[in-house]
Amino acid sequence: MNKIFKKMGLTLACVLMVTGSAFAAYPERPITMIVPFGAGGSNDLPARVLAGLMEKKLGQPIVIQNVVGAGGTQGTTQIAQAKPDGYTIGFDPTGALCLQPHMKKLPYGVDSFQFIGMATQQPVVLMTSKKASWKNLEEMVEIVKKAPGKYRVGISGVGNMSHVPVIALAKHYGLQFRYVPYRSTPEIMKEIAADRLQFHADMPVALSQYDVYGLIQFSDKKVDNLPMPNSADIGLNKNFIMWQACIAPKGIPTDILKILVDTMREVVNSKEYADAIHRLSMNVWWMEPDEAQKFYEKEFVSYGEALKDAIGK
């Protein structure tokens, strides 16, 4: 029995010595990128593209870990609470970072993250079936005004980016929709195809996948490949742009951060990245980390207001 304990002790000591002396150049082992949504989704594919290109430059694999749950908050919490040693980073969209914290108490907040950089952005687009009886925004408003409560909007989660922009639009025009929650976008699209639902607000990628067209994009600048009015055109002063950023837990050492930022900057500004992202119908958007951090703080506040606006009568 004693012999065994001695052997165990010896093995432990050796291992401790080896790991203790390992402070070589970053990165020296695989990096984990946490994506708070399911594999194959519109928040996961850009992460895989980014990770695939970044790992070639860093020399170590970047492993995508999908941590699913509670509208993206479970994964975001795991990013916020991870050890800030540069080996755990995250890829997060607007919703989980800016909207969710205003709706309930979460173990993270606006100051839990260190931004590495912005990756993509696209405006939220209100979509409707190509077979609908309205052909553009004005017609839709006319028809819906006459039948309050009759037309239904599919939302993928209460109070998230598919819900709040539509409420804002409805308030602007004085329309009354009914909001029906579903568990995933494909289900909503099926309902739109069957004409049980009439509207859905989502990222533009769905426009090419399903038989729908866009009525309005919620941004103050027009995006080229989206032929529809934007919110500035109709006087709605609200921006609902879904951006996705690469983030790290606060407290990451500055030299490691610099390596990550430099790599990401190179990748995001490269042609391969742009091609892949365009194939996903998204737009590339690079922002330096400091700018991104300030932008995040502003967004956080503005979404809080948008939410309060949407609820208040």
């Binding site: 194959g40 594919l45 195809a193 996948q209 194939r279 996903l280």
Partner: peptide, 17 residues
């Protein structure tokens, strides 16, 4: 184009890529 279950959702995403 509407995935019937989570696995086919990933397959459709592969198409896009």
């Amino acid at each position: 184009g509407i995935p019937g279950d989570p696995v086919t959702a990933i397959m459709l995403a592969t198409f896009i890529l």
